[in-house]
């Protein structure tokens, strides 16, 4: 198991499966808030949903509708269950706040290098701790 330490963005604890992208995400025009699916045309996660997953991503880009689209995803029950990201911006901060899911940034290792899609994550945002159980360990376990 790998343990990362970072800073709380939104408090709370959660565990779940990671969905990782090395590409920044657009809210408005980039996701379908009803299903949590990435819809941006040339995005590597196009067609995949973050609903109930721990979304691991570099940060936000695009329209300032970012927060309202993640907000709507929460109201539709399609939001991520947690967020781990690298680059702080107003879009991602406000988006995380209104998603009401635990969120962490400023980690001591690059989460995009350490965490892969399918890894199991336990995060405690109040303590700033992310525990990563690799997919291979899980399948062996």
């Amino acid at each position: 198991m790998i343990v990362l330490h970072g800073r709380k963005v939104v408090g709370g604890a959660v565990q779940g499966e990671a969905l990782v992208t090395t590409q920044t995400i657009s809210g408005w025009g980039g996701i379908d808030p009803q299903t949590g699916t990435i819809i941006e045309m040339r995005h590597e996660l196009r067609g995949q949903s973050f609903k109930g997953k721990i979304l691991v991503f570099p940060g936000a880009k695009g329209s300032s509708g970012w927060s309202s689209f993640f907000h709507r995803a929460r109201l539709a029950g399609a939001a991520p269950s947690g967020m781990i990201f690298k680059k702080m911006t107003t879009k991602v901060a406000l988006g995380a706040v209104v998603t009401h899911a635990p969120a962490i940034t400023d980690l001591d290792q690059d989460p995009l290098k350490v965490i892969e899609t399918g890894d199991w994550i336990e995060m405690d945002a109040d303590q700033g701790i992310v525990k990563v159980m690799k997919r291979q360990e899980r399948s062996r376990g």
Partner: peptide, 8 residues
Amino acid sequence: TNAEGTES
């Protein structure tokens, strides 16, 4: 200004 959102 920063890029604010509907809530902020």
